Simulated scan of single mutants.
Amino acid sequence: MNEIGMGISEAERAVEAAIVTVAAWSGKRLRYRAVLGGISNTNFQIEVEDDPVRYFLKVPGKGTEMFIDRKAAVAASKQAEEIGIGPMTFDYLNHLDIEIAEFIQGRRPSTHRDFSDPAIRGEAVRAYRRFHQAPALPLTKTVFDMIDEHDEQVRQLRGYQPPDHAWLRRQYLEARAALEASGLDLAACFNDPMPGNFLIGDDKSIMLIDFEYASNNERLYDLAIWSGEMFFSEQIDREIIEEYFGRYDTAHHARFIVLKALADIKWSTWAMVQNRISTLDFDFYKYGIWKHMRARSIITDPRWPSLLKTL
């Protein structure tokens, strides 16, 4: 753990300058260390003298204001706390767009392997359902809004576009038209199912962290993007649908698969924005290329036209 004054990097010095301004911590010995994980921001654990709470502090990454509404993220974090699926939050540095939450002890970040356990998958589905059933968030941002936003940002930044970008764009617009014609089912959505954003307890219970991308969005998109992130099979997708809705439905499954493709388009395009602006040590180009490839694999499936008709 570093003491105040020991910071070497720009991020460490920024954290020191910020935490010494917290009135509740005035006069206390403060220590901090970097926390690994995440591909957009710089994270730290904070220890405060005589305080049993350990704090998690997030410093926004360069350029993330292009697609993250920090006030909306704080509101979503607070809502998750209130319904019991997120950590305690603290408004000490909200004015600096620096999030502070409880550093939850006794839980560990999930891995992809964890979700091969049906009991853990079931807990995650129930956590999603609780968040979806909560009141609407202050920000409505659908997957369509996200894709259009990132597409324009890539254009302005002169970022990488795949050779078949125009074709992918047409497939997205066709899928969007079909989904909008069927009607969107908006709910408070998490929108960011990286494994590290699920904290697992010894009892296999789940808590969610990191609500930067949370918004009112298509309900099934939230489950579809989670499935894609965890590489679930279609059989597991069927089980998720049955667990969530209480029964399996082919129309829900068609919607699920189409939304998986849109999720990959969204994150592949997001990655190409990050590839132009981020200073973090992460290969966003490789990540984006892989997401493009998986989106194509879904769209070129012979079932794609019938899936759109089923919506």
Rank of each mutant, 00 (worst) to 15 (best):
L184H: 01
A254G: 07
E229P: 12
N216D: 02
W25E: 03
I104H: 05
Y55Q: 06
L57N: 06
D203H: 12
A166Y: 05
Q153N: 14
E229L: 07
W290E: 11
R121I: 03
M66Q: 12
D69R: 02
D69S: 13
F144E: 09
M272G: 12
P52R: 02
S297C: 00
W270A: 07
E152D: 10
K260C: 08
I19W: 08
A80Q: 09
R113K: 13
Y287E: 00
K260G: 10
A18C: 08
G183V: 04
A134V: 05
K204L: 01
R29V: 01
F282Y: 12
M272F: 14
S215D: 02
L259M: 14
S233K: 00
L223S: 00
I8G: 06
M272S: 09
G106C: 08
E243R: 11
F245W: 02
F115Y: 04
P52A: 07
Q105G: 11
S227Y: 06
R219V: 00
V74C: 09
I98Q: 12
V35T: 12
K78E: 14
S205T: 15
Q171P: 02
F44Y: 15
S227T: 09
D164C: 04
A134K: 10
P138F: 02
R54N: 05
W167M: 07
E102C: 04
S182E: 11
